[in-house]
């Protein structure tokens, strides 16, 4: 039950999403792995948010690293991604996204990032606190019906990497081309799959 990162992007359909801010919580990784985990997190977040349609709520399972990337893009083209492990309740992750978007707008109005073309770091102090608070979904969302589908107006689309990709592209190929990932991180991503399985035959 972990939230690894919260990222905010400017999303223009057809273009590479522009990073506005990203925060990480990587205490569960060894010191020398963190660099690679950061890169992989940013890569997965950027690829997922770039394939999310406006108004859509997506939870994409990334089987290779056993992480789930929750994303949404609002009508102004501001996208938010929350990367969690596979047991984190999706509904809570999407609540977190909604709050993050609100917090971001409080400090950075649309005009400030509308014209940006390359990655920046727009400080949003609330994100760090939210990231820590949401490590435990139960305290973050005291409404006990965490997983209930009560609010049917919010539907979460569950997608796999293949469904999300366009024209049959695979995440592996994207990873090979990506400049978010160093050589070390690409190796890390390929090994992560092997490491996460303790029983190979299952």
């Amino acid at each position: 039950m972990k939230v690894y990162s919260i990222g905010l992007f400017k999303v223009v359909p057809g273009n590479k999403p522009v990073l506005l801010n990203i925060v990480y919580e990587l205490s569960s990784f060894g010191f020398f792995q963190r660099g690679s985990v950061k890169e992989v997190s940013l890569f997965v977040s950027r690829e997922t948010v770039g394939r999310t349609n406006v108004g859509e709520r997506v939870s994409m399972e990334h089987t290779q690293t056993q992480k789930v990337c929750h994303t949404t893009v609002d009508s102004k083209g501001l996208g938010c991604s929350v990367l969690t492990d596979s047991e984190y309740p999706g509904r809570v992750a999407h609540t977190l996204i909604r709050i993050c978007l609100e917090e971001f707008y409080k400090v950075h109005p649309e005009s400030e990032w509308r014209g940006l073309q390359s990655d920046v770091e727009l400080q949003t102090p609330a994100l760090d606190q939210l990231l820590l608070k949401y490590q435990n979904p139960e305290t973050a969302d005291p409404m006990m019906n965490l997983q209930k589908n009560l609010d049917e107006t919010i539907t979460i689309v569950k997608k796999t990497v293949e469904q999300l990709g366009q024209r049959g592209e695979k995440l592996d190929d994207l990873a090979a081309k990506s400049d978010d990932l160093s050589f070390q991180s690409k190796a890390f991503m390929n090994n992560a799959e092997r490491m996460n399985k303790c029983c190979g035959y299952v």
């Binding site: 060894g30 010191f31 020398f32 792995q33 660099g35 160093s182 050589f183 070390q184 190796a187």
Partner: peptide
């Protein structure tokens, strides 16, 4: 207090 293996010291 911690050891690790790295691909390259560059980072």
């Amino acid at each position: 207090n911690e050891i690790g293996f790295v691909m390259s010291s560059k980072d």
